[in-house]
Design a protein around this nucleic acid. Structure first.
Lengths: 243, 243
DNA sequence: ATTGAATCGCACGTTACGTGTTGTTTTATA
DNA sequence: TATAAAACAACACGTAACGTGCGATTCAAT
């Protein structure tokens, strides 16, 4: 028989928590002293351990009460629901991380808080990725869209950082001569990174480029907007002319 | 100028939410009608949009108030803190998913709820992975431990399912003759899967096996316990004898 | 018996609103 | 312009899982 304090020490849960579990009828002490102090026996301890296990799995106290009530309970179902929930939450956090990463980089390289980039980024991540890619439907095949989605998801922090760096570099130099040495270098850096990310898939890159040119409005790849695309276009046109 | 209802329609946030933001001083309407109805102007709308953006990023309303208060605010710091939080949460969910997956499989294949497996699994995931591997320190090199941690994290649902299946098969047949056809098949299936997971790294597999044999207590790889290890040992010894 | 520690029971605080009520203001219609 | 209908203000209570007190017992040790 344990007093509430002893049980607390034994299991590591606070007295208040045990108090609460008693209040909501989750764990009622099997007996009491004449004075009214709660006494917990081994069965109670076991029940507590099970409750803690289920809590670790992410169930709510009310659910735990139900699960422990009917032993015929649909355990598998409950756990698989939890699994689904955990997966959905992970998806959410993954996109949130991407968004935060993009915003963080944008502040870092632009040196100030740019609300329009923030709004665009968030808007981009708020709708589900399927919808975002719908815009590209006429330019890309199913296959290509899937590839892009994979890349998007697997883009590492380093990739993102490099990507932000080159793009903010370009943004800082939008007005320079497209035929200049520096412009050529910038465009080349962009191309290299793009190839790197798109894995040397020339066809995909080409189709992607077509899509980008035709969908200049809005932000399509995080912070890359119309201005950047047009800059790169100009540089390439200048290059062609030299030839 | 928008009434609270118009603003609600325009932005999609409920009237009650705007009400709340007014209450806590997050978004106060810039003017009111003679009768006391709230009127929001474009600046208020902008502030609301910013609030929503920050909320999307996961900030609390109180934090948002502070961030929007001092423009000199440490934006980058705040966002990077958020990023860290998101990452930690993802880590937590990843391990939780693994644990749930293990428990789900254990119920599926054992056909009943086995609390001791559940407790062991949870205990395994509650301490951080570093500590778990500390037990193996004397049997495995740094390199090997790192490899194992990677595998552990990347073990797919299918792998886990197969793993659970073979192990529960073995558990159902612990008492059969180690020299029998069936026992040999079971051990072989186990070996094949282990090789599959450990990527044909014979040395790693060997060292791992040593560790498993010496650390029979507790569960080391999810549901694989002492009994299973001893069974496989017996089968191999029987095989040796035949030779 | 006394005293210090443990415990009980109660209540308010937390977060970001949802839901509901009553009384007032605005808007639309006659 | 009178009146009905809609919108709104202001307040209160509920949510989930406890944390943090608080005064009033009760327990355990001396």
């Amino acid at each position: 028989m344990y007093s509430i304090g002893q049980l607390s020490k034994k299991t590591g849960v606070t007295v208040r928590t045990l108090d609460h579990y008693d209040e909501i009828g989750l764990i009622k002490p099997s007996s009491k002293t004449d004075g009214g102090h709660r006494l917990y026996n081994e069965d109670d301890v076991m029940r507590l351990e099970r409750v803690l296990a289920l809590k670790f799995m992410g169930f709510k106290l009310e659910q735990i009460k139900n699960i422990l009530k009917d032993s015929t309970s649909t355990w598998l179902e409950s756990i698989q629901e939890q699994l689904e929930m955990v997966k959905r939450e992970q998806e959410r956090l993954k996109t949130l991380e991407q968004a935060l990463l993009g915003i963080s980089c944008s502040i870092e390289y632009e040196g100030e808080v740019n609300w329009s980039i923030i709004f665009s980024t968030i808007q981009l991540f708020q709708q589900d990725p399927e919808d975002v890619l719908q815009q590209y439907k006429s330019y890309l095949s199913e296959d290509e869209m899937e590839k892009i989605m994979d890349m998007n998801a697997q883009m590492s922090k380093e990739d993102m950082r490099e990507w932000m760096e080159i793009i903010s570099d370009i943004k800082a130099n939008l007005e320079i001569d497209p035929a200049s040495e520096k412009a050529q270098q910038l465009a080349e850096r962009w191309m290299n990174l793009a190839e790197n990310i798109f894995g040397n898939d020339e066809e995909l890159l080409g189709d992607m480029w077509d899509a980008l040119q035709n969908l200049k409005e809005g932000i399509v790849f995080y912070p890359m907007d119309k201005d950047v695309i047009e800059f790169i276009e100009r540089v390439y046109m200048a290059k062609e002319e030299v030839k």
